[in-house]
Design a protein around this nucleic acid. Structure first.
Length: 651
DNA sequence: AAAAAAT
């Protein structure tokens, strides 16, 4: 047992605190505000008027920001913004005929404490006025080298050069090889430098010029490939350079009760609250000192607080679908001004039944049509339903296929242990006892119930554990994530909610206490470790209940040059020749099959769009990874040969 | 089969 007893106690306290047991409940603070509140007087970057109306700026809504001295001399952290300055009430109506904001002072503007630079930029007289630097905000956004929980994991760039990328479609632009101007805006480049990013990842090399060329994009890429930057960089860059777009004229409306409506120009949809929150944090980084105000909305958190933040600026909005629909219904958000639409983890969103809401948001509200916006879709896989979505949401898109990250990189050592269900607990205890101190261990289970039971079991055994799953309150979820990140509870028991997308530094061990039945889930889960060039270990408990994943798992282990236990070979053999043949329903995918629909540009085989394939990967042609051509996914849509249940098999 | 997500 290498974890000190002190640590254990601290974590138990935390655990109780998160359950509200010791009565120290404080007001709910959403994750994107925590740091801001901790640094009591540091203004949130979503402060400021942020309303992206160019008409407002020339009227004096913004003051130029040339440097911190200028800013300070203007009198206060928000002196640049006459709109919101308590000292300079403005009587003019702001845009869209809203009642004057005269006298209205947002709370944070009153409590700003010491005067310092806001870190907020503005758009004024057709030019981007870069905000002054704010050291405190910089530490918050870009990390403090002494605090590992705040450091961005960064990306293991060397490894990334090995990842094959293929871009297909008409007129694929040349990939870029560096963060440079052009095509990226200098302000963005500065933020990229602050974030210690040095080289674009393969996704970014392609997505940056593609988006800069105003093209739509369908990218098959998994989390960890740098795709968040892949869409944020080019979108923010274009925003910085071209400035805000005037929101559509609204019918003037008298009366004071009329709520403000936000007109974001970029909308990013993602499946889970934590993921949306994480994207927002990235957006805050890269929007630093610019005129762009990122905002975030998701369920489970106080809607009024989110509304207040939206009021202070909502140019780039990250959202989960449900809460967004809610806000649209309340008339607080309009999509009429959308220029960029991003669907992240699109396959996941469909899995989770979001399709009706997504279609409503994209097609049933006031969002500009497919020709009048730029749409980027990201998905780990490209099954039929995603192809349909792509067909409906994208125009003449470029298809980008990025190889697996988690599995192909060999910095994750994957172990498979044969453990019967009844033995799992004790094996887990042994495993945790032999854990090196300092690292974080993520334990995946299949059910919420199991997550609760297991974390309680671990705590009962004096292990600093907590859990995250969809039946816990949002507050508890965020608390769990926070105590995990900071190492106060270095063991996190999680359901699928944490499998994808979450970027948690210092996860040294991923344990698949229960194996998922889907190999892509497995890849995502183990991908929580071995990031940032660190090595990671993953251990999976396998028993006869996991036969459904065994073939794909074998294939994956081989692909990643991992040791394969002999007994596993035997299981594969048994399931292949012993039991009933498991039809794979994938058009005869052989070794090399990518499962789950693969990630090929299906248009190539039959569509009229075909264009030259572009491969970033010298040695290999396009066909070396990705699924085989799968017959059932034709463009015409006649075949119902979807993957998954072709074979009716449960052993 | 389970999980996730608006209240």
């Amino acid at each position: 047992m290498t974890n000190g007893i002190v640590n254990v106690n601290a974590s138990l306290e935390t655990q109780f605190a998160s359950l509200g047991i010791n009565g120290t409940n404080s007001a709910y603070v959403p994750p994107h505000l925590r740091n801001a509140q901790r640094a009591a007087s540091s203004p949130s970057p979503t402060n400021g008027s942020g309303w992206n109306d160019p008409r407002a700026s020339p009227r004096g809504g913004f003051e130029p920001l040339r440097g911190s001295h200028t800013d300070k001399s203007r009198g206060g952290a928000f002196g640049h913004n006459a709109f919101s300055s308590p000292r300079e009430p403005v009587s003019t109506n702001d845009w869209a005929g809203r009642p004057s904001t005269n006298g209205w002072t947002p709370r944070e503007h009153r409590t700003d404490g010491p005067r310092e630079s806001s870190g907020l930029g503005a758009w004024r007289n057709g030019a981007h006025v870069v905000g002054p630097r704010n050291p405190r905000l910089e530490t918050e956004l870009f990390g403090d080298l002494t605090d590992p929980s705040k450091q961005h994991t960064g990306i293991n760039f060397e490894k990334y050069d090995d990842i094959p990328v293929e871009a297909t479609g008409a007129g694929v632009p040349e990939p870029v090889n560096a963060f440079a101007n052009p095509p990226l805006d200098p302000v963005l480049l500065e933020n990229i430098t602050f974030a210690h990013y040095t080289t674009p990842t393969p996704v970014q090399k392609y997505s940056i010029p593609i988006v800069a060329a105003n093209r739509d994009l369908m990218a098959c890429a998994q989390t960890g490939s740098g795709k968040t930057g892949g869409f944020l960089f080019p979108i923010l860059s274009a925003a910085f350079t071209s400035g805000p777009r005037a929101p559509p004229a609204e019918t003037p409306h008298m009366g004071y009760s009329r709520p403000r409506k936000a007109y974001p120009t970029t909308l990013i949809l993602a499946p889970t609250r934590e993921l949306v929150s994480q994207i927002h944090e990235e957006a805050r980084k890269f929007a630093y000192r610019s005129w762009v105000r990122p905002a975030v909305v998701y369920g489970g958190a106080d809607i009024n607080q989110q509304l207040r933040l939206i009021d202070r600026g909502c140019d780039l909005l990250s959202a989960t679908p449900g809460r967004l629909v809610d806000l649209i219904e309340r008339g607080r958000i309009s999509l009429a001004n959308i220029r960029y639409l991003v669907l992240d983890e699109a396959d996941r969103m469909l899995d989770m039944g979001f399709e009706p809401q997504i279609r409503r948001i994209v097609q049933g509200e006031d969002m500009p049509g497919v020709q009048d916006r730029q749409t980027l879709m990201f998905s780990a896989t490209f099954p039929r339903d995603i192809q349909m979505l792509a067909r409906d949401f994208l125009k003449d898109y470029i298809f980008l296929s990025v190889g697996r990250v988690g599995s192909t990189s060999e910095n994750i050592t994957q172990k498979i242990e044969y453990v019967e269900d009844l033995d799992k607990r004790s094996v887990l205890l042994d495993l945790l006892a032999s854990e090196a101190a300092g690292g974080l261990t993520l334990v995946f289970v299949e059910t919420k119930r199991m997550a609760d039971m297991l974390s309680e079991f671990l705590m009962a055994n004096n292990l600093p554990a907590t859990s995250i799953h969809g039946d816990r309150s949002q507050r508890e979820r965020e608390m769990a994530l926070q105590t995990f990140r900071t190492g106060r509870t270095p063991i996190l028991v999680a359901t699928a909610v944490a499998a994808r997308g979450l970027d948690i530094p210092n996860v040294t061990h991923v344990i698949n206490y229960d194996l998922p039945s889907d190999i892509d889930d497995y890849v995502h889960r183990i991908g929580r470790t071995g990031r940032a060039g660190n090595t990671g270990v993953s251990t999976a408990f396998f028993n006869r209940g996991n036969k459904n994943i065994v073939r794909d798992l074998m294939e994956l282990l081989r692909e990643a040059n991992q040791e394969i236990p002999q007994w596993l070979d035997a299981v594969v053999h048994e399931t292949t020749f012993g039991g009933s043949f498991r039809g794979r329903g994938r058009g005869g995918a052989g070794a090399g099959g990518r499962g789950r629909g693969g990630n090929r540009d299906y248009r190539q085989s039959s569509g009229p769009h075909g264009g030259g394939a572009h491969s970033a990967y010298g040695g290999r042609g396009g066909s070396n990874y990705g699924g085989p051509a799968y017959g059932g996914y034709g463009v015409g849509g006649g075949g119902t040969n979807s993957y998954g249940n072709g074979g009716s098999s449960w052993w």
